[in-house]
Design a protein around this nucleic acid. Sequence first.
DNA 1: TGTACATCAGTGAACGCGCGTTCACTGATGTAC
DNA 2: TGTACATCAGTGAACGCGCGTTCACTGATGTAC
Lengths: 239, 239
Amino acid sequence: MVNRRTHHTSTSRRAHARGAGHLPAERRSQVERRRQTRRALLDAALQQMDGGYGFDSLSLRRVARAAGVVPTAFYRHFDTMDELGLALVEESVATLRSMLREAREGGTEAQHLIARSVEILVAHVREHRRHFAFMAHARASGNAVLRHAIRSETKLFASELATDLARFPILRDWSTADLQMLAGLFVDTMIATIDAILEASNGGAGTEGLSPETEARLVTQAEKQLRIIVLAIPHWRST
Amino acid sequence: MVNRRTHHTSTSRRAHARGAGHLPAERRSQVERRRQTRRALLDAALQQMDGGYGFDSLSLRRVARAAGVVPTAFYRHFDTMDELGLALVEESVATLRSMLREAREGGTEAQHLIARSVEILVAHVREHRRHFAFMAHARASGNAVLRHAIRSETKLFASELATDLARFPILRDWSTADLQMLAGLFVDTMIATIDAILEASNGGAGTEGLSPETEARLVTQAEKQLRIIVLAIPHWRST
DNA sequence: TGTACATCAGTGAACGCGCGTTCACTGATGTAC
DNA sequence: TGTACATCAGTGAACGCGCGTTCACTGATGTAC
């Protein structure tokens, strides 16, 4: 009976080194190597979801493979796929926060505010398409952990928006509940816009990207929808 | 060498007969038996998705098992899981249509119309919770076939609503694009409400159902959101 | 600066499992005479 | 009405595959002296 564990040559091992794999020639520090592999796993997960497939359809092995790493190396960074998913939620939420921050800087005149907000939204979705697509899917996915994480972040986001809205003179006398209602309406409309953008840029027949015409149409529609809500504000009698 | 294929007793086969399984005592016709198994497969799929898990996480074997049928029997009814999914989309769409039809019967005075519409929506979601949950998940799922099927049905639904809206005197002079925009806003708000109801009735801590308080809160919020949109209508200048 | 040892990120073989799909089959229902 | 044959919904064994997870390992990086 021969030795069960085969002794491979070192060259065969080198041949497997790809992406975040083991590249001794580079002389990276251990912590840097670790950081890069973690990043590669997160990016691989986002990349694998790119075709419009959700987090649920990922497998640990596919993510590891796409990251250029052996499946077992995954466990050096995350205990489960859920933990990787939560890390992606954190990154995505950071993107949302930066969006809200950017929207806060600038004038408060309604007409410009709407156009600017939609512009910022579209720019962010384009810039961080994978993160938004991840959230759009995971929001309604089968994974309860991710779904709840994203839902609660969405509620938090709406609450922060309500606080911002409270600063407008015309909304000063609205009840908290009505401000939340209004913020919810804005957020729901934004989410619908995000969905529409993502659908148009994924589902497009082979074009892979969002055509300028389609984008313009979606921007116009979103602006109109926000504007019609704003139009109603002076006529609302808050309880 | 013994015969590879074991010859089981007929009693052991009977013991396996469950649900839509083979029940010779009943003397059903072949077509009736076929119809019942198909129904059992569809119901089993809906049931398996009940815990908040989406269509993507179903497997053919699990569905067949839950339907009380052997995996291979599945193929007598559907070529693939996708086909079963499309059958569920058809059923769900029929539900939506009946909802719209019900909403059309009755007065057109705005205030009552909103309350009635929300009431009908909530009643339908409660009555057909599994179908709505299926659509809410599949809308954003990884399965491109189902996603597109549901998206296009949603657009059709919004178009029909736009046609209904065109009959209101106050909307008579609105452009088609603006009517579509308005219908889209209503539909997006309804979808958000449906999502909120489903989330509250699944995510509730062990209660399994939607508490009357939560439902009342969601109904109030939805009514307010629709009302604020309606409030804006007289002030909109359509292009 | 040089040496001996510790750490630990990534490796590769192995496992048991549920999956979709194939195939030849069984036996009740349906039909032709 | 009775018999012989056809139909076909559902069966059960088998297959190859990708999965998550375990384990002992390798070898470069890091550290104590």
